[in-house]
């Protein structure tokens, strides 16, 4: 199976679908609503605007945090070491790379495939992917909605769970030798 074509079809197309077609779909939906039920459309729009207003300050903080991460950390550089390290060090590095990684997931698949072929453990890749759920620069938004304590508890548990998933996955993958991706 041709990886490039497959990747193009599934990863990129899905991303485009979400980032282009989704907003268009929503706009079409609103247009229809304005024509059919204008009395419902206005409150819906007003409600959306008030949600956006409440997101304004957290979003500014998000910008500041992304700026700092860009300045001091380099996800690609950290990810590069995943192929060379193993054990606890590898797991911690994978977690850090996952946490600081940005951008749509499809952009990371080629790099992950590459470092996997270079010898990165399955557990490292799984830990990387699961820690993408922990995003320090989005904490302001999360705190605004759920409160600080919830965010701390959830973040800690998610990181612990990612290690558990990496561990269990490596056991299952080791039962018989995994086939190569292609």
């Amino acid at each position: 199976m041709n990886w490039k074509n497959e990747q193009k079809q599934s990863g990129m197309r899905q991303y485009l679908k979400v980032s282009i077609f989704f907003p268009i779909l929503v706009l079409v939906l609103y247009s229809i609503l304005f024509l059919v039920m204008p009395d419902k459309a206005w409150p819906a729009l007003k409600n959306s605007v008030s949600i956006l207003q409440s997101l304004l300050i957290p979003l500014c903080l998000v910008f500041g945090l992304i700026f700092l991460i860009n300045l001091f950390l380099n996800p690609a550089k950290v990810a590069k070491y995943l192929g060379r390290t193993s054990g606890l060090k590898g797991a911690v590095l994978s977690a850090i790379a996952g946490v600081i990684s940005v951008g749509p997931i499809y952009a990371w698949y080629p790099l992950l495939k590459d470092i996997k072929e270079k010898g990165a453990a399955d557990s490292s890749i799984a830990i990387f992917l699961n820690n993408r759920a922990v995003k320090p620069f989005l904490l302001p938004i999360m705190i605004a909605y759920f409160g600080l304590l919830f965010v701390i508890v959830l973040t800690v548990l998610m990181i612990v769970a990612s290690f558990a998933i990496g561990y269990v996955l490596s056991i299952f993958m080791g039962i018989d030798k995994p086939k190569c991706a292609d």
Binding site: E6, Q7, Q9, S10, G11, L112, K113, K116, M173, A181
Partner: peptide, 19 residues
Amino acid sequence: LIQLPAEMTALGRRFAVLR
């Protein structure tokens, strides 16, 4: 689920489904 095919081709079917 929507990204599953991309993950399977990149990292292997078994890995992606298990993960």
